[in-house]
């Protein structure tokens, strides 16, 4: 009995229990093997439930469980650290015909992955712009903090996230929404990105001054509200001047 056979039977409930596995009386293991099958399936479903709370709310508990079971059989984890398990979920959802009528689910999954990545990202010292004159600020060359994530979407993913995670949140409008995820201390927070905000963020590579990022932003979105963008990025610990990890 090889671990190849054992693994295949764990991931495919239609396969018989591998030969050579017994109960103490020497009978085929049957239900005893199913304990391992169930442990693997239920622990991975639990990991996906923890990682995708908004998807779970959108689909309902039972439908999410069905989706998670199909997902984990097609995409067992490849890393022992389960904190990023599910990074194949957006692509899986895009190819999953039964949910074709809900095309925004993949981007919701991307947002949930971004929030998890932010939670585990390296700590960093945020750019502190207090007391800087505007000229000095424009010359700074920050980069996105390790815990900062930027997502662009054709769908109102911020509104969908908010409606499912915050009480009394408004219903989402059917518009395209970009999202900035930042972490002030330990809890990642998604923010709605103003028009042009994603282009501003993408320009900040640690070498481009803020003035240059504003130019990139105006080129992408001529009517961008620069004051709103700067206020959001400087007030949410989105940027850092340091390049290395802090530990």
């Amino acid at each position: 009995m090889s671990q190849t056979d054992f693994t295949a039977a764990i991931l495919n409930p239609d396969l018989p229990t591998p030969a050579g596995l017994k109960d103490p009386q020497g009978r085929p293991a049957g239900k005893r093997f199913d304990v391992y099958r169930n442990n693997v399936t239920s622990s991975l479903i639990a990991a996906l439930e923890t990682g995708f709370p908004v998807l779970q709310k959108l689909l309902g508990q039972d439908s999410f469980k069905t989706l998670a079971t199909l997902f984990l059989r097609a995409n067992p984890p490849t890393s022992r650290a389960l904190s990023q398990y599910g990074d194949a979920m957006p692509g899986f959802l895009e190819g999953f015909k039964p949910l074709k009528s809900l095309p925004y689910l993949a981007d919701v999954a991307r947002l949930e992955l971004a929030i998890r990545a932010s939670y585990h990202a390296a700590d960093s010292a945020p750019l502190d712009a207090a007391g800087l004159d505007p000229e000095a600020l424009m010359a700074l060359t920050p980069r996105l903090a390790p815990a900062t994530q930027v997502l662009t979407s054709r769908f109102p993913i911020f509104g969908i996230w908010q409606m499912n995670m915050q009480p009394d949140a408004p219903k989402p409008w059917p518009v395209a929404e970009d999202v900035l995820v930042t972490r002030v201390n330990f809890d990642p927070v998604p923010h709605l990105l103003p028009t042009g905000g994603a282009a501003f963020a993408q320009a900040l590579d640690g070498e481009t001054p803020i003035a240059g990022a504003i130019e990139a932003c105006m080129a992408a979105a001529p009517r961008a509200d620069i004051a709103a963008i700067l206020t959001l990025f400087l007030g949410s610990a989105a940027l850092t001047l340091s390049s290395g990890k802090v530990q």
Binding site: T4, I10, N39, A47, P77, T78
Partner: peptide
């Protein structure tokens, strides 16, 4: 125990002979 085979991590403590 074992939990990984090829590239797959099964997240359980599986038995060996």
């Amino acid at each position: 125990a074992w939990s990984t085979h090829d590239a797959h991590f099964l997240n359980d403590l599986l038995p060996l002979p």
